[in-house]
Structure formats: structure tokens, C-alpha cells
Design a protein around this nucleic acid. Structure first.
Lengths: 369, 369
DNA sequence: CATGTAATGGAAACCGTTTTCGTAATCACT
DNA sequence: AGTGATTACGAAAACGGTTTCCATTACATG
């Protein structure tokens, strides 16, 4: 019996008579042959049928972040529909350069999605080395690499302007980690600008924009960094801010998780939100919605889907590659009534309708064999 | 230049002089060679360095279920520490038999973890065909296949006895889907026993046990099934139960998600929990903790870690044998059936004995461990 | 009966590594 | 310089399929 025929029996049932096929399968069963080896098949066909996903190093925290989960969900949906597997690349922050490169190089995938890792992450560098189709999300744009994201800076700018419009200027900011090293505490403007994470950098810059626009001094705004992206961090950072200045009128958090932590801390201190103090978040996770948080709602699931579609070369149907300027104007779906101005409690959600998709046309990494 | 030397340059830097190695790497860079092909390497080494994960078909719902996420997190942690990738197998409920088998067969993995799929799931059948090391979780035990789970039946039995001890006997039950087909509504005992999901079957049986033990009629207890595992389902099912019998004293939900939905529905109706009516859940997710739900806290993350360790042949360190009396969690050690020896050296069945606590924070009940 | 055509099965090349083993070169030591 | 040990590198055989191409057979047709 030739290999060809066996191969055909499994993959092209129409290429041989059904009784021969049945005989082959029967024999296979008897011999304990489990079917064609997927690895050998991948080698020959030059196709793994798998998409690699590079999540932030802090895997444990990624799974605790509803936004990351939604992204994963969106991506997984697209992969499932395309019959592709989704491989979580084992990203170990404590590994040395060699191990990291090895981990990425060992991944038998047809392409990579990179989600919110630091700019200088060695995993990312290793991925780019692989010269496979790649999509980055919540990252700085890389020449020739597809990109999915939102207008973080503009969105946070809107939120900042909204707050300032309400009369807030004595605010404190809570931010997740800005770099790969643990640092919990105040960060000055220099450090803010040097943040290794695109998202954090952009959002802080957006807030600074809003302050600059009305000639308020951004340098005077305390920004507290926390390495762990948890509610507890949000709480402790809020505490730190209030110790420093108990007269703050708003706590601006760079994510909903942190904002939820801020809420609990404020309640613990007997402060009413939003009567006594305002809290804002970012992302628009369900829990935030339920808590009645002022936040920026971004289409996280859609970002995952867009990334997947982009990688699998499907048309990015729902997200035509938009002009940058369109998305630069996030929609305030609750315009602030006049009577609410001057520090009156108010809640609004800034909704970003669709992710921003930038398709790399120069195709450096794309389809280059 | 021979292939051997190039291979060594990448994988065994100590096997050749550093200047030769540098020369090779330099040449590779110049020629655009991206390093050894992981697929070919896997073929040769007979090792993919990847663990396959088969999640329930309803992928979208899996990612919305905090318990499933925690399991995933635990598994991912173990994989990361072992330098293994984690492959989400594209499980499509709507695919036909052939596509499903193909999806599983295309996965280049060293082993599978199967998490809470229906007993008759064709994906599961395909996985078992592959004759690879496999661990099932929240599934019925399969001869010769590693198993991770908790004593669902005993746990729910304890919870039931606890409720009965408090005087509850007029209760309603909310359950997630019992089979692969959508069915929303009341289910009789026959259907309960025929449930395709191990977990649901065991938990319902445990509750029935508790009723039987004190000679209460389980047939009289209304059980409402919901296909979608969401808070909305919990709410609507609760509504359905109350329409049927407004004098219920307790709503027993088979998961925390459903229970949280029940809570909102009851609040909406102006009923106080736990003063007017008791609600119980299952899983012990953080949200439930926060809501002060009576629930069974199971070590979900630990289950994920145990599954990973079992598959990767690490000792299952953190899960020692506990006394049967605690909550009836035996740790069984099965000798390896001879025919399976070639697949994997040491197989055992582990039932998690890590802390499983019946919490009673909602005031009506108080009990522990 | 010869011949063209379609259906079916087989031979061999190829995918890109790892690994074993052999050979040549280098080196320390007597 | 001879000898044995050690090191550096290369040749060739797997690994387990897919795919292309060709040979054979069966059958209908002129």
C-alpha cells in the first residue's frame, strides 16, 4: 500500500474508490495509526493553520483584565471561524534574551498578533525577526506592519476637556505601569513621556493636551504609577493621591480596573462619588458600566476581530480603513447639560465606534514567502 | 557550509567557535534566513512544545465565564513556566463531523487538555483518537485518561443539606444548558439525569441527594434550564421560577454567573436577599464574593494548574490527599493500564482536594469548609 | 481488434530540520 | 616526532507526510 493512497484516503476521499478507502481506514484502525501527522503535514504544506498571539509578559494580569479578555475573545472568534488555531506564545518576563527568542522561534505559526507589549519587549523584536505576517494592537505603528488601535490620545483628550469643562482642574491621575520594571509611586512628566507602553503614553499625553489647551499647568498634576494592574492598585494609588492632596476633585484612572479600585477606596474613606469627588476610567468594561463609572468605552472585542481579520487577509469588513481624522473625534454620547457644569456630579461615556485599522501597504513582512 | 553547523550555530553555541558562529549568523542575516523552521524542528524532534486546549464549543461564552478564564489562566501559567505554548483548538459547534475531526487532527500538539465539553462532543472523540497524552477537566472520567475535577456532587449535596438544615424546602433551581441543543425552560428529572454535561448532571444529582436524604420530594422541585450562561439567563430563569411559584424561599443556581443574574432580578422585583429569599451560586468567582453570595468556592485556577502539571508530567505538588470526610475528595491513584504505557509513563486520576469552602456570607447561612 | 479516455494506484521528490557518526585538525604530553 | 585525546566541522540518514507525475487498468468507442 503506498503512502499516496493512504494520504488520499484521509484528505481526498473523492480520489479513490470508497471500498479501498474503507479498507485503508480499517487497516489504520487495526494498526493503531492515528491519522496523518499534523506536523509533517505543516512542514510539507508550509502552513500551520495557527495564529500566534503574543500577550503582555504579565500573563497572570492579562487574564485578569476584562479588556484583554475581550480582545482575546474577538480574535479567537475570527480564528475559529477560519478554522485556525490560536497559539498563546509562552512569554516569560524573567527569561533571558536567548530563551525569549527561542520561545518565539519555536512557535509554528502562520502569523503573529502582538497585543500591548512594551516598545522594547524582546519578544516583539523576535517576532519581527521571524518575517511572518504580523499585526500589532495597542502598540506604536511599525513600518510595514499592520496595526489596530484606537485614538487613545484624542479620546483621553476629550475626557480631559470634559472634566475641565465641568470645572475640574485639581485632579490626580492613576496609571498602570509605564515600563517593564516595577515602580510604584509618583512619576514626573519626563517619565510619563518615556513610558514604554504606547497606550499609557498616549493617554497621559491626551490628558496633558487637554490641560495645555486651557493653559492649566500639567506639571502640577500628580500622576501615580502602579505596576500591578488590579483594583487593589487603583485603591492604593488613590490613597496615595489623597494623602498628598485631600482637596482633589477628580481621580482620573487610565483604566476601568484601576477606577473600580479607586471607587472602593473612596467609599472606604466615606467619600461619595460623584457628589464629593469624580472618578473616571477607560475601556468601558461591563463592571464599570454597572458601577456607573464615567469612562471611555472602546470597542475591545472589535479590536480583536479586526486584528484577526487583518492577519487572515480577510477584508476588514466592519472597519474600513478610516481616515485618521475621523477617529480623532470620539463621540461624547452624553453631552454635558449646562446645569451640571461647575463640579456638579455627572457621568458620561465617550464611545469609540470602531477600531482604527492601518493596513501596511509596503508589505515588508507581509507575504514575503 | 553544512546544515549541521548552521543548526549548531543556532541551538548549541558551545559546539562551535564563536567567530564561526558569528560568521554564520551574519550570513543568515544577509540572506534573510529567519532561523530554523519550528515546524521542521518539531517534525524531527517529535515535539511541538505545545499543549492543545479544547474549550467548550461556545467559545464566546467560555470567555465570558470567569471560572473558565481562571482555569485558562492556571493552565497558561504552567505552560509558560514550562516554556510550552498553549493552542486553542478551533472548536466550531456548527461544523460537520469531518471538519471537526480535521480541526483536531490539524493541531500539532504534544497533548490535550479538554475542559468541560459535552460527553458526546465529537471534538472530544477526535482528541481521544489522537492517542496523545490527554487530561480532561470537569468531565466524566475516561479509562486511562488523566482527570481533574472536584467533587461536584458531594459539594452540591453539602450545599443542599445546608439549605435544608436552614429550613428551605420550597426551592427553585437555575441551571445552565444540559445538552448541545438550545432548550430554555423547565426540565424534569429524566432530562436532568440525561444531561450531556458532567458538571451539571453531578450538581443536580447532589442536590437531589440532599433532598432524598431527608425524604423530600425532588420531583416537586422546579429546575429551569438556560442555554446561554449569562447573568441575563440567571435573571430570566429566576423570573420564570417566581412566576410559577412566588412562595419559593431559595433560588439555587448552578453557577455564580447565574446567581448574580438571579440577584439582580430579585432586587428588581423588590425582594430583599437574604431577608426575603436566599440565593446560592457555585464557583466562588470574585464578583460573587463581592456581592456576598452564598456559594461553593472551588479552586478553579488550581484546576488549571493541576491539569497543566499532570500533562507535563510535573508532580501535582499543591494538591495533597485530604481526608475523605472533608468534602469527599479522594485522590485516586490508578495503576497504568498496559496498553497505555507507551503513551505516557505515569497516569493517575486526581480529584482536587484543595480548599473547597461552602461560604455563607449572605447572613441566612453560616457554615464553613 | 485497435485505440482513446477516464479512473485508480504507485514511485519519487520534497519540506527543513536534528542527530549520529566519521573524519580532519588541533593540542597536550611523553 | 609520535601518540592519544579532544575538538570542529561535514556527510547522510531519518522524521512523516503531500504532491506531481506516471503507469496501469478498465471500459467505451470507432
Amino acid at each position: 500500500m503506498s503512502r499516496t493512497t493512504v494520504s488520499n484516503a484521509y484528505n481526498r476521499p473523492d480520489q479513490l474508490s470508497s471500498q479501498l478507502r474503507e479498507r485503508i481506514l480499517e487497516t489504520a484502525r487495526r494498526l493503531g495509526y492515528p491519522g496523518p501527522d499534523p506536523v509533517a503535514r505543516s512542514l510539507r504544506t508550509r502552513q500551520a493553520g495557527v495564529v500566534g498571539l503574543l500577550l503582555t509578559e504579565a500573563l497572570c494580569h492579562a487574564f485578569r483584565d476584562p479588556a484583554a479578555i475581550s480582545f482575546l475573545e474577538g480574535l479567537a472568534m475570527v480564528c475559529r471561524d477560519a478554522g485556525r488555531g490560536l497559539l498563546l506564545v509562552p512569554a516569560n518576563p524573567d527569561a533571558d534574551e536567548r530563551q525569549i527568542t527561542a520561545a518565539v522561534n519555536r512557535a509554528g505559526v502562520d502569523g503573529f498578533v502582538v497585543y500591548s507589549v512594551p516598545d522594547d519587549d524582546p519578544h516583539l523584536a523576535a517576532v519581527l525577526q521571524r518575517a511572518l505576517p504580523t499585526v500589532v494592537c495597542d502598540q506604536p505603528q511599525v513600518e510595514g506592519i499592520d496595526h489596530v488601535g484606537i485614538a487613545d490620545r484624542a479620546a483621553m483628550g476629550s475626557l480631559g476637556a470634559h472634566l475641565i469643562g465641568l470645572g475640574h482642574h485639581r485632579i490626580g491621575v492613576v496609571c498602570m505601569r509605564l515600563g517593564r520594571d516595577r515602580h510604584d509611586g509618583l512619576v514626573d512628566v519626563r517619565s510619563q513621556r518615556a513610558a514604554r507602553f504606547h497606550v499609557q503614553r498616549a493617554r497621559l499625553a491626551g490628558l496633558a493636551d487637554a490641560f495645555g489647551k486651557v493653559l492649566l499647568d500639567w506639571n502640577a498634576v500628580p500622576v501615580v504609577e502602579r505596576f500591578d494592574h488590579t483594583m487593589a492598585s487603583g485603591a492604593s494609588a488613590t490613597s496615595e493621591l489623597l494623602e498628598r492632596d485631600s482637596a482633589l476633585t477628580a481621580i482620573v484612572c487610565m483604566s476601568d480596573i484601576l477606577a473600580l479600585g479607586a471607587l472602593t477606596e473612596l467609599r472606604r474613606r466615606g467619600l461619595r462619588v460623584p457628589e464629593d469627588i469624580t472618578v473616571t476610567g477607560f475601556d468601558g468594561v461591563p463592571e464599570a458600566e454597572q458601577a456607573g463609572l464615567t469612562t471611555v468605552s472602546q470597542p475591545v472585542l472589535e479590536k480583536g476581530r479586526a486584528a484577526g481579520r487583518l492577519l487572515l487577509d480577510h477584508p476588514v469588513l466592519d472597519h474600513p480603513v478610516l481616515d485618521h481624522s475621523v477617529l480623532n473625534h470620539p463621540v461624547l454620547n452624553h453631552p454635558v447639560p449646562d446645569r451640571l457644569k461647575r463640579l456638579k456630579p455627572s457621568r458620561c461615556t465617550v464611545t469609540l465606534a470602531a477600531p482604527m485599522v492601518v493596513r501596511a501597504t509596503s508589505g515588508v513582512a507581509k507575504d514575503s514567502s
